[in-house]
Nucleic acid binder design. Sequence first.
DNA 1: TTGTATGCGTTATCAG
DNA 2: CTGATAACGCATACAA
Lengths: 337, 337
Amino acid sequence: MTTMLEVAKRAGVSKATVSRVLSGNGYVSQETKDRVFQAIDESGYRPNLLARNLATKRTQTLGLVVTNTLYHGVYFSELLFHAARMTEERGRQLILADGKHSAEEEREAIQYLLDMRCDAIIIYPRFLSVDEMDAIIQDHSQPVMVLNRRLRKNSSHCVWSDHIASSEAAVTQLIKLGHRDIAFITGSLDSPTGIERLSGYKAALAQHQIPLRESLIVEGKWNPASGAAGVSTLLARGETFSALVASNDDMAIGAIKQLHESGIATPAAVSVIGFDDVAIAPYIVPSLSSVRVPVTEMIKETISRLIFMLDGGDFTSQQNFAGELILRDSVVAGPHR
Amino acid sequence: MTTMLEVAKRAGVSKATVSRVLSGNGYVSQETKDRVFQAIDESGYRPNLLARNLATKRTQTLGLVVTNTLYHGVYFSELLFHAARMTEERGRQLILADGKHSAEEEREAIQYLLDMRCDAIIIYPRFLSVDEMDAIIQDHSQPVMVLNRRLRKNSSHCVWSDHIASSEAAVTQLIKLGHRDIAFITGSLDSPTGIERLSGYKAALAQHQIPLRESLIVEGKWNPASGAAGVSTLLARGETFSALVASNDDMAIGAIKQLHESGIATPAAVSVIGFDDVAIAPYIVPSLSSVRVPVTEMIKETISRLIFMLDGGDFTSQQNFAGELILRDSVVAGPHR
DNA sequence: TTGTATGCGTTATCAG
DNA sequence: CTGATAACGCATACAA
């Protein structure tokens, strides 16, 4: 690998001068500039970012840690797509670290990004507790933002969506349309999101004095297979229901498949509480209700805040700007019988 | 950030010693070892990977560049999932660079990974020509592997799947089952994969003396919407067909939806030429045929070769090990009418 | 406008 | 077993 020193020699200048023309900092005459560029072309020189970053103490990278368990399906793709795009629009690079499937591994992933000296970090947590993340934020000088979780202390460092409210809204829709027997496939119940969506369901029932029937609830694992299994379980229990809510798009897909295979045509109603506007299930059964979680907007807000902090912005002194961001899901109920 | 020097002072030793206990290289007495570890704990020291990598000239990272246009849908997620998992299993970190949507941007992404001094690089190309990649491989000392493309010169540096053969096999299946009017939704025709799958279709027809009807072919863009649009176009043309082949899973999903909406129930047959075993379409219409592209295996082979090269392995001197890897798709034809 | 010198945080080579 | 000290490749304050 040819280094800056070699370029300098070839151009008959010093390293410092080469560094100047490359960074654009400091004055340098047009002619030496030309000589340097020529030397660069001839030698095929490429800057060593490790060295540059070490010297400048900034890497121009944002780190993102996401659990392995999300690495399936459309949701993750979209999340990553928008995160990468927006990061690059701000002239930075996104570095992805795999949070795998445990709190310990999530910690390690964060630590890796920190050790790599990412300028800032985005955490889309799955196993880490809110308290631990609050601690992480305070222990480190790098800006940290947490996606999809509501922090207690550093409330300006998180962007979340009110899953309880949106789930409740979706179920309420069904109730208003006359449904009483509404089955519910939860997400993993070791995940806050899963728990929140379930409690939204319960809240809606309670609100309308509909007795809760535990047998109508079945726990899924966010993936299509568990959605299908959920339906099987419900049927095996001998339950009947005129509507079914799956806690995410993937499980809805699986549920639909299983209903089909069990000889049940499109159910009276299947309301999907899904992610973003790219949910596939409504694509299959157009009459499907679904909730749109605005990931795109959430990521945009997250990255904006990070960049703002990197530029020296301080949220504690800007309480009015946004103390706590709450993005509410919107419920779109399609026509169903 | 506390540095190694501070740890050294606190432990009453030199930087060198601290470095030794951390790397495990060189002898160091148990007691000083203990003192150092204690100092590390007390100070909350964390190594600066930029500095370490600069000094060692190795980053323990594999770079992966993938186009933006793939950042949607399940295929990308799976690709990334397996790549990340296997990389970490080998004790390395995967760094993803966005190839965006042009040859120039693909080049920049590769260059970035090179500048970051990734130990090796995986390219999943979309716009770059085979010749250019052959050139890239020869111009750089870092090991480079190309996924899903057949290189001319560095044939041991690529892992690909025979899309023509698998597409042909899928269509042949339909023909054997009695179909004559088989519609085909291609992928983007500026992509080699798209072209290859189309030629497989044509080859199958030719093989069975079925005249090619251009009006049964419509160009898609790999996404669900274009699959739906493709069906619309076919119907608008007044075409009738008893089978339809979509060049990937996403377009198949869109096609199914549009067929539904057009009042056409599950068609006589829809054969999906899809990716990996996570195709969603067959999940919706169980009778669907599909082709499985073994991405998992392909990535595994790719990474294995990369690591092998990093360990000093040389393929030119190991012709017998594997001159050129060809993974053939397997066709699974389900029952259809 | 340009060069010199020093620092960034580690690793690695030699002495001791 | 341990400690100076020189790289690693680049940026930058300070001189000139």
